[in-house]
Each structure stands twice: as C-alpha cells, then as structure tokens.
C-alpha cells in the first residue's frame, strides 16, 4: 500500500536546541497515528514540519506522493491541519470564516457552500453558524478548527491536540468523528491523553527529545506493562519509556 505521509530523516534545530533528531514517519491510508510524548518532546514541531509551517533543517517530506519542499502549494492541498490551540480569526463569523477557507481552497461559491453545509452538520456547528468566533466556547472553537480542516475533504489530516480543552461529551464526539474519518484517510494526531490512543488510534508513536522511543499498536504498548500492573497499564508504560533515560541527560542514539 502506498503511504500518504512519508517523512524521512527529519531534523529541526532552533539555534542551539535540537528539537527533532532524525525522525522517519510513514502513514498509509486507513491509519490513525497517535503521536505521544511529554511536553516539549517535539510533537508540535514535527507536525509543523509535516504541514510546511516550519521548514525542516534536514530531511524530506512527501504528502500523497507530492514533495512538500518542491511543490508546496499542491502538497498543501492534500491535507487538513488543526494547529495547536485551534487558532481562528476571532472577529469573523463562523460562516464567513468557513467561506474564506473554502475560497482559499479554490472552491467556487456553490461548491463551497455545499461543503460548508455538510461539514457543519458533521461537527455540529449549526447553532453557532452566525456567531462571531470570539464569542464561542473552547469546545465550539475547536470544532470550527476541525470544520476548517475537513472542508476540502482531504486524504490526510494532521491534528495537533484535537480534544484538548473539551468536556467529556465533546471529547467522545470528536473521537467518534476521527474514528469514522480514519477508515480511508491517513490521520496523524498528537495528544498527551493516553486513553485517547486506546480509543481512536491504530498505531502509537512515543517521542521524547525529538527521537522515536516506541512505535507499535496501542495493544503492543499496553502489553509492555510488567506483570502485576493491572490498572492504568498504558500510563505505566508511557512513564517508564519516557523517563528511563532522563537521569543521563543525553537522549539515546
């Protein structure tokens, strides 16, 4: 199966800080990849590189077979992106904002309004469609961010902490949506909520200090728990993976 996301040898330095150190990532369609790691592990940096917001210091990225560095505009058409914190223009109304995104995605007015209607229904934004974004609750803002990412029905979705700040009902809804979307798309989502990985992901990657420490299915991850641990197995494994090298200061490799 051809991969939709292919990232090879990604490095990113910010001055003296080496945030991402040689990351390879291949995601086929139908896979929901959970990107895990403690704060500052390089999750957001990696996602920003995958979407072209940050240029990698080294390495190459191709999305649906299109090289991001060589053909950035076409590559950007292949994915929908929910940046960290779901930023949207606060002074715009939800419908105006989505219409702007539709135009930005090259849809004409008719195609755009058709897509807006279907996406709004999918993420339940109908009640707030004519409200200004700054007046919305955190949950609704996040849904506007999701709607924006889904508008052009992309084969790839890159979601930075999609359920952060949502209440349990909203979390459940968003996870349900991601599961449905993930059947034929490639989805990369970052989170530090471990139950989310169990609930929606078909593959989990744990990174720390910009390096991959674990890559496997959520059940592989759980199976790593030592005998005797019966509750919060994943928590236990996550802690042992991300903490074991810490006293030495330098990461492995």
């Amino acid at each position: 199966m051809t991969n939709l996301v292919d990232a090879v040898g990604l490095h990113r330095r910010f001055g003296a800080i080496h945030a991402v150190r040689g990351l390879d990532l291949h995601v086929p369609p139908g896979q929901v990849l959970g990107f895990l790691g403690p704060n500052g592990a390089g999750k957001s940096t990696t996602m920003r590189m995958l979407t072209g917001y940050l240029a990698p210091t080294e390495g190459s990225i191709s999305l649906a077979g299109i090289d991001l560095a060589r053909n950035p505009l076409d590559a950007r058409r292949t994915f929908g992106y929910l940046p960290e914190g779901a930023p949207c223009y606060p002074d715009m109304r939800v419908d105006d904002f989505l219409a702007f995104i539709a135009r930005a995605r090259g849809m004409d007015a008719r195609a755009g309004s058709g897509r807006i209607t279907s996406v709004v229904e999918r993420v339940h934004l109908g009640d707030v469609l004519h409200q200004r974004i700054e007046t919305l609750s955190k949950g609704f803002k996040r849904r506007v961010g999701l709607a924006q990412a889904l508008l052009h029905d992309p084969p790839i979705l890159i979601l930075d902490e999609p359920t952060d700040g949502l209440d349990p009902n909203q979390k459940h809804e968003v996870r349900e949506l991601i599961r449905q979307l993930g059947t034929e798309r490639a989805i990369v989502l970052s989170t530090h909520i471990l139950e989310e990985v169990e609930a929606v992901c078909t593959r989990a990657i744990i990174i720390r200090q910009g390096k991959i420490l674990f890559d496997g299915t959520p059940s592989d991850l759980e199976a790593r728990a030592p005998a005797g641990v019966t509750k919060n197995k994943m928590d236990h494994v996550f802690r042992s993976i991300t903490r074991e090298q810490q006293p030495r200061g330098e990461p492995i490799g």
């Binding site: 920003r48 072209g52 917001y53 505009l73 950007r76 940046p83 914190g85 930023p87």
Partner: peptide
C-alpha cells in the same frame, strides 16, 4: 500573536 499565521501559511497560498 493569535497563531492564525500557522493556518495561513499552511493553506495553499504563496
């Protein structure tokens, strides 16, 4: 400041 630049620079605009 609002982070929308991340949205803008990842949309298909030069």
């Amino acid at each position: 400041r609002s982070g929308t630049i991340e949205l803008l620079l990842t949309l298909p605009f030069t």
